[in-house]
Nucleic acid binder design. Structure first.
Lengths: 340, 340
DNA sequence: CTAGGTGCAAATAATTTGCAGAGGC
DNA sequence: GCCTCTGCAAATTATTTGCACCTAG
């Protein structure tokens, strides 16, 4: 759908000491107009239709050039030959490959990526790229129903990332809202109130963006999940809100929980912001990543200030006594670990 | 190490209407003596050394025959040609592939497998096989140190599966031990006591097997993790034991927790028992799987009996009242879901 | 004796390369 | 004019196949 995008800024990508060529341009354009995973041969056929004087070798050379330039990715579905997919505006992803109809379906799993990283770390292996392929039979082949045409994965990625972001902001709002009521220190209450308001603003921005996205494909909401990310389904602050519900959460504890959640959410916006190849989505996410980092820093600062204030006499006797006693060291250790 | 195993019962594997042949036997034997991932060409070289009159075509044909017979698996590391690995006594696994030295390392992640299954289910895709490959640089290539010789993955698999099984039994022991003290109904106490004893027996069997395994490779304990399975590191009953620690766990709740844990542990033994290609390990695991299923059934029976008994009058008024009131339906629903 | 199994050489199939001429900067 | 791009044909690489011959059951 509508990926008839004009040739991107190829000039930027063009490796040094390289010349423009009308044939290469033609091949690149034809390639970018296609959806899905083309074999070299498929592309040759398409090219021959436009200009039959372009040779097979040139197509091969151009494919290699596109891979080097970062426009295309070479993928191997175990067929004994390679296929090529766009990488411009297509996030890295994994594949479901139907052995019956030879179609392939894309997905991304943050959870699998995290586990892959863990395994690599455990084996002291420096992972540069990973391939996850699930071979089997697709829904339309096993039910006999017509295959649903699939939306382009950039849109799906944006949709899912936004859904997660929205859930995160919503849970953040709830978290800080609950915090305002729970926290005893007046300054802390002010901090929580401020952050709650910010989350509301973020939420509005994200929801507006989500609406925009839906306009690009009316069926977008009904399409299957592209980005799998378990922990984030209810928002990254959901666990924190649960913790706030527990008895005996004092102001310091509330800060610590907030710090943990903000850190997760900062990471989320940073990581997925970088994955967006669409510059607007990227901007929104990276801006939020920055803001979340500011929240994080604010919380840490305030946390420390509160620790200091509680240590001073003239406050609640019990609290300051505890702080001066054995607990002081522990709290410091926690604050330190909170910075990590 | 020591995989110079005699040719397995090839006769069993031999497809119907197939004739014995000394050349094929030679090829199969040479293949099975090798460790690691051979390309067809590697094997041809090895064969030529033994008998230079065996042709390339025969090697190819025999490799295909081995794949069909289930002795070998064809793997694709994206080199433009296939490699072959044993499947006899080698559990299915994933790969870390070093692009510098072209060595490949094996691992298995139950966690990744579970996520892969989830993704497939979400997309209504019938998964038959999945490939996970991590490309990058291995430890010895990035540090320059000599590569550690790796143990054969059958042993590593057995080691890790046994470790998990031992942790599971240990946690099961603790779970039932705690249950005995906590549970009020005398019959339930008896059930918990019985199960605790059984877990002790299991534990002994498994520990003995683990000791045997260590004899096969003195360095076995120091080798890196092969089977990654997060949830099971502390035993599949660990979470259950934590739940027992909570306040307000009544006898029924204790049963429900036990049912959940036994189900997980039954699944574990079944799933990994089937993966063992070593018949002894397989036997131990599958036998345990059966016993865990019996435990499971016992718990469900006893759970139901207790529900019934509590519903009868003459018992603790509060408990039976609750059971007769709104809670009855809920408990039934839980029992039903417990059967799944 | 007959269905497989095997060797050899030739066929495929995907991709790469050498080289001479064409074309952009 | 120089250096890159391109077409063409030939080379390379991994794997398969046709066919005549061989061998186990």
């Amino acid at each position: 759908m509508a990926t008839t995008a004009a040739v991107p800024d190829l000039d930027r990508l063009r490796p040094a000491g390289t010349k423009r060529s009308s044939k290469r341009d033609l091949i690149v354009n034809v390639f970018l107009k296609q959806e899905g995973h083309l074999s070299a041969d498929d592309l040759v056929d398409l090219i021959k239709r436009e200009d039959h004087r372009i040779s097979r070798a040139t197509v091969y050379r151009t494919l290699q050039w596109m891979v080097d330039a970062g426009i295309a990715r070479k993928v191997d579905f175990g067929e004994g030959r390679f296929r090529f997919e766009h990488s411009y505006r297509h996030p890295r992803h994994f594949h479901l490959i139907c052995k019956t109809c030879n179609r392939s379906y894309e997905f991304l799993s943050s959870d699998i990526e995290a586990l892959v990283e863990e395994v690599a770390t455990a084996r002291a292996f420096t992972a540069r790229q990973s391939v996850v392929q699930i071979y089997g039979t697709c829904e339309s082949c096993s039910t006999g129903r017509a295959p649903e045409e699939s939306s382009n994965s950039e849109l799906l990625f944006a949709r899912d990332a936004l859904r997660i972001a929205i859930a995160t902001e919503r849970s953040g709002m709830e978290f800080y809202g609950r915090g305002v009521k729970l926290v005893k220190d007046p300054r802390a209450r002010e901090v929580f109130r401020k952050l709650a308001t910010e989350e509301v603003h973020h939420l509005k921005t994200l929801e507006a963006r989500y609406e925009d996205l839906l306009k690009q494909d009316p069926l977008l909401e009904s399409r299957p999940t592209f980005l799998f990310f378990k922990g984030a389904a209810n928002g990254l602050f959901a666990a924190g809100t649960d913790q706030l519900r527990r008895d005996g959460v004092d102001d310091l504890e509330a800060y610590r929980i907030g710090i943990r959640c903000e850190r997760g959410s900062h990471r989320f916006f940073k990581r997925y912001g970088e994955r967006f190849e669409d510059s607007e989505g990227k901007q929104v996410f990276l801006q939020f990543a920055d803001e979340e980092r500011e929240h994080l820093e604010l919380l840490i600062r305030e946390y420390r200030a509160l620790v200091k204030r509680q240590r001073l006499p003239g406050h609640k006797a019990t609290a300051s006594k505890r702080a001066r006693a054995g607990r002081g060291a522990k709290a410091k250790a926690r604050a330190r670990s909170a910075q990590r």
